[in-house]
């Protein structure tokens, strides 16, 4: 279970409010899409959920416990760029988490232990369509492949909450649709809580079963920066039941195996 509670969140930079009065209760397993104009603080909200930054006031709780003041494995993250490690192969990126866990001193496994971890990720590699590219470095992958790797890497830790910061913003429209299918499949399998920031409203309504719209509601014409943004619309979509039956035909042939 991973219920997220946001209570009275305020965030300001240099006394300029960015976010104000944000209180929110997100049920476990929700796919929460966050949309809003540029500069309305949606990425800031995600950074607060990640503890990449600390709020000026207010608390964020996961399952009733306040989140740690720095990023921790209970929250996974996929950024628009730079999410994967350029010096590790596809395989190395996916085994890194296990290596860090099992070798506290150097964070590196050798020999049989390393082979075991490699075997453990072979299913994942096939599922995200990177089996043939497993020994390539990220610079040798397309943007879509890199993001698939980034998502898979974030899911290796089985986080309670997955945070996505415009993960498909830099991808072609066609590849984006494929990525949506992969993401929805993974979400249904893992049933984790997802927060996704996006510019694309269609994407938000396609993927999310709850859509949060961030905007400024208070305006001071004499001082435009006086107030921050808050959640102006909070739409619960009953997509779960509506979408679940046709999930199988929506996913591409390479994913058919992983749907069940």
């Amino acid at each position: 279970m991973s219920r997220v509670t946001v209570d009275g969140l305020f965030m300001e930079y240099d006394r300029t409010p960015i976010l104000e009065r944000i209180s929110l209760e997100v049920a476990s397993g929700t796919f929460c899409a966050i949309v809003g104009a540029s500069g309305c603080g949606k990425s800031t909200f995600l950074r607060l959920l990640l503890s990449q930054e600390r709020p000026t006031r207010g608390v964020i709780r996961i399952d009733g416990d306040e989140i740690a003041p720095e990023p921790t494995p209970d929250r996974g993250i996929v950024f628009q760029r730079y999410s994967v490690f350029p010096h590790l192969t596809v395989c190395g990126n996916l085994t890194l988490a296990a290596e860090l866990k099992r070798s506290r001193l150097v964070g590196r496994l050798f020999g049989a232990a390393r082979r075991r971890e490699k075997d453990a990720i072979s299913d994942t590699l096939r599922k995200i369509g990177l089996w043939d590219a497993r020994n390539r470095y990220p610079a040798q992958l397309s943007g879509g492949m890199q993001q698939r790797l980034a998502i898979a890497q974030a899911l290796v830790m089985k986080p309670k909450v997955l945070l996505l910061d415009e993960p498909f913003g830099a991808l072609d429209p066609g590849i984006r649709a494929d990525m949506h299918d992969i993401l929805l499949t993974l979400w249904r399998e893992t049933r984790m809580t997802v927060f996704m920031v996006t510019h694309d409203i269609k994407e938000a309504f396609k993927l999310g079963n709850r859509v949060l719209v961030f905007d400024k509601v208070r305006h001071d014409p004499q001082h435009p920066a006086a107030y921050g943004a808050t959640i102006t619309y909070d739409l619960l979509l009953d997509r779960n039941r509506r979408k679940a039956p046709d999930a199988a035909d929506r996913s591409g042939p390479d994913l058919a195996g992983s749907v069940h």
């Binding site: 990449q52 921790t72 730079y82 999410s83 860090l100 974030a154 290796v156 830790m157």
Partner: peptide
């Protein structure tokens, strides 16, 4: 990129591990 450091943290890396697996190779 800060993204990589944060990513490493979400994968459970300690500071020392980030040095050995992230900073040193790069």
């Amino acid at each position: 990129p800060e993204e990589q450091i944060i990513k490493a943290e979400t994968l459970g890396a300690s500071t020392w591990q980030m040095i050995t697996r992230l900073a040193l190779p790069q």
